[in-house]
Amino acid sequence: MNRMMQGALVAALAAGIASEAAATEWNVSVWGKRRAFTEHVEKIAELVAEKTGGAFTMNVSYGGLSKPKENLDGISIGAFEMAQFCAGYHPDKNRLITVLELPFLGVNTLQEEVAVSHAVYAHPAVQKEMAQWNARLLMTSPMPQYNLVGTGAPRDELAEFDGMRVRATGGLGEAFKAVGGVPTSVPATEAYNAMEAGVVDTVAFAQHAHLSFGTINRAEWWTANLNPGTVNCPVVVNIDAYDALSDEERAALDGSVDEAIAHYLTNYGELLTRWDSVLEEKGVEKVMISEEVLQQFRDIAATPARDKWIADMEAQGLPGQELYDLVETTLKETRMGN
């Protein structure tokens, strides 16, 4: 009887060890704090755990695994399995997706941002470039058009951008540079300190980031309609980790993307709805730029930036024109579908 009980105990322990070994646990590197920008990451972790009965879980870390500008490097060496990064942090490493950061692309809604981003992510040349970093593009982090906050007199004339020190990355930085601005690409987590210390005069962010990183608390004004463009921030997974998933786990991950994005869009929509009340509460002036000034900005920044980007990509043997055309086509098709 004792031998039977011992055998049963050994079998139970072995089963428990096997079950524990079979569980998949991923570490996910993001930054800042939980906010509208990370809601789809939180949601996909929740959905994957539900669909696999807890056999596949994700630990979302806000800055504990890596600095924002080093997340892609971390993915490349397998330091963690999933991460979020912004293309403008290292445009030399993700050249092709920077097409989505060109100024004045004409993307008007978050839904359009999702459509053009995922179309670009699916392009074979883009996937090949990201594979050099052992990264598989999973989903975008759609953000509305960026706008400025600043102190002192509002900058609502193009001449007032000359010499303006602005926190702006990627294509946005180039747009402000074209009109005399002096862009700096400090990480989002350092933007408040840069503003407080006078390192920058203005900060370009989407609404959630002005809230999350506190720049709205130092602002005296906000440009409601400058809308020069936005930043593209993908969520990627380590290819080796992705390939090591079971068929069920992979299906749970891939099959949760659309639902996670839908949750993100709903959540962000609620933030945009209450934005005016946030400005009023904090005493921030809402500045409307005249159409004449906006057109001057577009004329100076948009076409030259597009042409230069396409020429630079083509000179490197990359399909710059094809990707720009893909963005334009996807925008038209998305609008027709709506």
Rank of each mutant, 00 (worst) to 15 (best):
residue 72 L to V: 02
residue 72 L to G: 01
residue 74 G to R: 03
residue 75 I to F: 03
residue 77 I to Q: 09
residue 78 G to K: 01
residue 78 G to D: 03
residue 82 M to P: 00
residue 84 Q to L: 15
residue 85 F to L: 00
residue 87 A to Q: 03
residue 88 G to V: 04
residue 89 Y to K: 01
residue 91 P to E: 00
residue 92 D to P: 00
residue 92 D to Y: 03
residue 93 K to F: 08
residue 94 N to I: 04
residue 94 N to D: 13
residue 95 R to I: 08
residue 96 L to S: 04
residue 97 I to P: 02
residue 97 I to L: 00
residue 98 T to D: 01
residue 98 T to S: 10
residue 99 V to P: 09
residue 99 V to H: 10
residue 102 L to C: 03
residue 103 P to L: 08
residue 104 F to H: 14
residue 106 G to Q: 07
residue 110 L to P: 10
residue 111 Q to N: 05
residue 112 E to A: 09
residue 114 V to F: 11
residue 116 V to G: 02
residue 116 V to H: 00
residue 117 S to W: 01
residue 122 A to G: 07
residue 124 P to D: 05
residue 125 A to V: 12
residue 126 V to Q: 09
residue 127 Q to H: 03
residue 130 M to W: 08
residue 131 A to W: 05
residue 132 Q to A: 06
residue 134 N to T: 11
residue 135 A to C: 10
residue 135 A to H: 10
residue 136 R to A: 11
residue 136 R to Q: 03
residue 136 R to V: 01
residue 136 R to W: 09
residue 137 L to G: 11
residue 137 L to K: 06
residue 137 L to A: 15
residue 138 L to R: 02
residue 139 M to S: 12
residue 139 M to A: 10
residue 139 M to G: 13
residue 145 Q to G: 02
residue 145 Q to A: 07
residue 145 Q to Y: 08
residue 146 Y to G: 11
residue 146 Y to V: 14
residue 147 N to W: 00
residue 147 N to I: 09
residue 147 N to V: 12
residue 149 V to W: 08
residue 149 V to I: 13
residue 149 V to E: 07
residue 153 A to V: 08
residue 154 P to R: 08
residue 154 P to H: 06
residue 157 E to V: 11
residue 158 L to F: 11
residue 158 L to T: 05
residue 159 A to W: 04
residue 162 D to I: 15
residue 163 G to Q: 08
residue 163 G to I: 07
residue 166 V to R: 09
residue 167 R to C: 13
residue 168 A to S: 13
residue 173 G to T: 11
residue 176 F to W: 14
residue 176 F to A: 07
residue 177 K to T: 15
residue 179 V to E: 09
residue 179 V to F: 13
residue 180 G to L: 14
residue 180 G to N: 13
residue 182 V to Y: 04
residue 182 V to S: 12
